[in-house]
Design a protein around this nucleic acid. Structure first.
Lengths: 197, 197
DNA sequence: ACCTGAACACCGTTCAAGT
DNA sequence: ACCTGAACACCGTTCAAGT
């Protein structure tokens, strides 16, 4: 049941997961699903939990603390990109913490190895993960779903103001999120984690 | 009509904005709304556009480029916090660019004043705004809507793993987002904007 | 214990019809 | 030009009833 739901989400996206759709897929009535898992929220939580178990906690790489912390942050990012559908589902239903908790813990452990524990560790972890979340929001957003005049590119084209034309051209073009991720997240990591000289 | 919709969103939140609800508020049928603005997406865009016009572009403060860029970024953050309901509505409907475009332009202008134009300007702008977006996502999320066992705090309490108890305690407590915003966003700003020595 | 049928209270949207 | 009534195609959820 949860297996079928997970497969449905991965094949047709988060918006395909409705009680009626899943019921049809399982050849039962919607009420049967309610009897088994009890409501859409619980179903989503179960799907996300299942996916979290599937996520192999790949080993953190790097020779220095700052490299290892950065790599742990990168795991959150890459894992989300590799599982767009379930990640989006988790985001939309407030279950992202369930999905990423093991990866978050790996990050905290690296921060502790870097000497950051207690409030300092929590602060560093939250600052880094919030930054990562911003990039995930940008990367998982379905651009094709919004009409041009509502996109950033469309607005720059229509309403550049006093901005340099070369900058406007760059703003109308596509962003290279993976590159921006590296520099922005690294900047935040470096602010909290200083390698011993 | 758009005025009433905006008032409804501000008073009762984004989820209160349904065609039927707004129709009742206006003492008309839903079809009347369709005749006037043409669909929910267009309605939301109009609401957000109206709100964007209302947002006074307060002057950017600071003596150095990095201070002024930081202040422009802070305006995006503060403006969103002061208008939670409309900002959430814009986020959920892919119209956030419409709402924030004037503030984004102010940021780009400060970046140009700092010597960043063309691709460098666009990169810096995107990295900074994506980081800000992460904090907005965290700040606008309705914590009370998700049950504890799905929150980060609940997961740390239930499943701390090999993490230091003092760190776990800090992770269960509330985050001070405004403080974290300052340090994380400043770190990203500093990475792109270097003051002349 | 497990599943169904019928219903409730919602959504956004369309379209022919009225004035 | 402006508005209505009725309908379509969806949602999540509940509850009495069946086996």
């Amino acid at each position: 049941m949860v297996t079928n739901a997970l497969a449905l989400v991965e094949k047709e996206g988060p918006q395909a997961l409705t009680m009626r759709r899943l019921a049809t897929e399982l050849d039962v009535t919607t009420t049967t699903i309610y009897w088994h898992v009890g409501g859409r929220d619980e179903l989503v939580t179960e799907i996300v939990r299942r996916q979290a178990d599937r996520l192999a906690a790949r080993p953190v790489q790097g020779d220095s603390p700052r490299q290892r912390v950065m790599d742990a942050a990168r795991h959150v990012w890459e894992s989300a990109l590799e599982n767009r559908a379930v990640t989006s589902l988790a985001y939309q239903n407030g279950a992202i913490a369930v999905l990423e908790h093991p990866l978050h813990r790996a990050l905290v452990i690296e921060l502790e190895a870097a000497g950051l524990r207690g409030q300092s560790g929590a602060d560093a972890m939250r600052a880094i993960l919030t930054t990562v979340a911003g990039f995930l929001l940008a990367a998982l957003r379905d651009e094709s779903a919004t009409p041009v005049e509502r996109t950033s590119a469309g607005l720059w084209a229509a309403d550049p103001g006093e901005v340099d034309p070369t900058t406007v051209t760059a703003l109308i073009g596509a962003a290279d999120l993976p590159v921006l991720f590296e520099s922005a997240v690294q900047a935040v990591v470096d602010h909290y984690v200083r390698d011993a000289a």
